[in-house]
Design a protein around this nucleic acid. Structure first.
Lengths: 359, 359
DNA sequence: GATCGCCACTAAACCGTGTTAGTAGGCGTC
DNA sequence: GACGCCTACTAACACGGTTTAGTGGCGATC
């Protein structure tokens, strides 16, 4: 191990100047050669590339950002209290999918967690001013969300996922035409229909819904969809209770629903953590699943099929979602036009936690 | 909404030149004023700061990185297949804790997922050459891990968490003295003792261990600790089975252990996902928990206390862990000396899944 | 009253790229 | 053989900061 003991000073990173000196050309020639631009002969280009390779040269992202105006990184901000995403697998899967798009382009993901949406807007402004990211992915859209407009004003390209209203919806916020915002829209209404139809077919007429955080756009959409479906099908009951996505509030909501004079015979839970909490509350009350009450989780994850009874769940692949969103952002950065896309309708995976209601 | 319809071009980010012009001084004076350096009068300093504030000036991170040599960001790489961290809450908590340290300094976290440790080393080299990060946090140390040496050679400051051997251990790799590596060492042996003593006191003499990925250093330490404890206490059985941390392999390992001629009366599972899987396999075999078999989860998370029976778990706060690691890295970046720290011993939270073994 | 020193500030160089303008040299053309 | 054109390259500048080396003005000192 003597070469380790020798304790060499850390190497200096090679620059274009080093490559130029070694190859016997100017730095401009090096720049042309390495960026596949005309202006150098093929022989020189090959020689330069070989030298750069040998020295282990990489473009300084800082220098690139300074001259080229693009940071070579994209941003993701999470504005949820850390404990509210305790057991949720959604975000890790999402990030994993985002990486899948970014990896081939060697674009890192800059990630930060903040307190609330105001702080998030502030962070976007800072990132923009600092030139840290070329674009961002916006998650958890809110009912009246300041972020799209903030991003539009800054001219920072972004993809809003799971969010905003359907194209043509009059409620959709008016944004500057120059705004470079794409939108991957999740069909919460269609998904809710899938679930409700499943439960209706089993015979359920009283459905409870343990929803997510009140201000979230998809929470509002799901609540509205359930009520609409309830009216359409003539359900006796279609009631939603909002929470903060934690097991604690999920359990509290379940207790409240179970304590009603005519409790629901089926529960729809907006994430798997609250679904497990609901199952737990049912057990605590001596209710058998699915004989006494059915439970559906709006999100599939390991525990949904590891647990007994296995949970009927809405399967939407968070990683593919992230993959697509990041791809869309890259397209936007490459000069593509903003688009309004719809995420494919998730699949409902029936398992052991749903069955016919008690007679 | 006419001011939105007016469709203004996106603003240009203000630079020091703008501040200088507005304040009627040179850019050098602005630099001095904003960095609290001598060279300007108090009156000028105040004026410059006020102007910069009014214009919303922020230093370009790229320009800073180019002249100041530091990127103003730290890196985190995860070298695990995405599906292996499906339900684990550890990483999200860890990242959340890291953010807590970084937020006051406005340092973003650069995050990337890769295939394996080789790719991770390659990424470190690239990040170093690109000047993207000032330091990194290394997780999941392996038995013979190439990363510390890679980082040492590059001179990239790093904090290795959960890792390496205890100070003074002869197996610890020899690194260049100039290496700027701190180390937060987890006392897996002490933690294993906590669990084994708990089970021993309940009367268990045959203990099975569903361990993590074979190459991981903490997996090796836990296996060795269990065997040592077994010898010390004169256990009949103390057997470990390695997995890849997924529910699938956890279940497979549980089946294998249960199928032995003299199956263990207690299982220690290296994460909560596998603990749930083990519980599920037990149920599938008609084994009651904890009457027929006890289960301990080496990691606490929402499901551990939402599930029934609630799982006895080792509680180590991943967010505090991350907080501390990031703090240590920042200290290192500020010129502090590398340190060897020990993480506080986790607490064992007895719940419903452990009890006396069958007679 | 000339000299010195200090203060507050400016000019200029630098970091590592990308880009644009400019130039030397070879070749074909009339 | 003078001219123009094309190729292959170099010089110079820009990006937005930091830092070093000046510089002019003013008060104190002998």
């Amino acid at each position: 191990m003597s070469e380790i003991e020798s304790d060499a000073p850390p190497p200096r990173r090679p620059t274009m100047k080093d490559v130029a000196r070694e190859a016997g050309v100017s730095t401009s020639a090096v720049s042309f050669a390495l960026n596949n631009r005309p202006g150098v002969s093929d022989a020189t280009r090959r020689r330069v590339i070989r030298v750069a390779d040998r020295l282990g040269w990489r473009p300084s992202s800082a220098a690139r950002a300074l001259s080229g105006e693009n940071a070579g990184a994209i941003g993701l901000v999470l504005a949820r209290p850390a404990d509210s995403l305790g057991g949720e697998s959604f975000f890790l899967q999402l990030v994993s999918g985002i990486q899948a798009s970014l990896a081939p382009r060697d674009q890192p993901l800059v990630f930060q967690m903040v307190e609330d949406v105001q702080a998030e807007c502030e962070l976007y402004r800072r990132w923009w001013a600092e030139g840290r990211v070329d674009g961002v992915i916006v998650v958890d859209p809110r009912v009246s969300d300041p972020r799209p407009e903030t991003l539009a004003v800054l001219g920072l390209p972004a993809v809003v996922i799971g969010g905003m209203e359907a194209p043509g919806n009059p409620d959709a916020p008016q944004l500057p035409r120059r705004a470079r915002l794409s939108n991957i829209w999740a069909d919460d209404s269609g998904a809710m229909d899938l679930i409700v139809r499943h439960l209706y077919a089993l015979g359920h007429r009283r459905i409870g819904h343990i929803a997510g955080t009140p201000g979230f756009a998809h929470t509002a959409r799901r609540i509205a969809s359930l009520r609409a479906a309830g009216r359409r099908l003539g359900l006796e009951q279609a009631v939603s209770v909002t929470t903060d996505f934690t097991d604690r509030q999920g359990a509290k909501a379940a207790r409240r629903l179970f304590s009603a004079p005519a409790p629901p015979t089926a529960l729809i839970c907006d994430n798997e953590v609250m679904a497990v909490a609901a199952v737990s509350v049912a057990a605590e009350r001596g209710l058998h699943i699915p004989r006494d009450v059915s439970v559906v989780s709006w999100e599939d994850s390991v525990i949904c099929h590891t647990l007994h009874p296995q949970l009927t769940a809405l399967v939407r692949k968070a990683d593919e979602f992230g993959h697509r969103a990041a791809g869309e952002l890259l397209a936007l950065l490459d000069g593509g036009a903003p688009r309004q896309l719809q995420d494919p309708l998730p699949r409902l995976q029936p398992r052991e936690s749903t069955g016919a209601p008690p007679a």
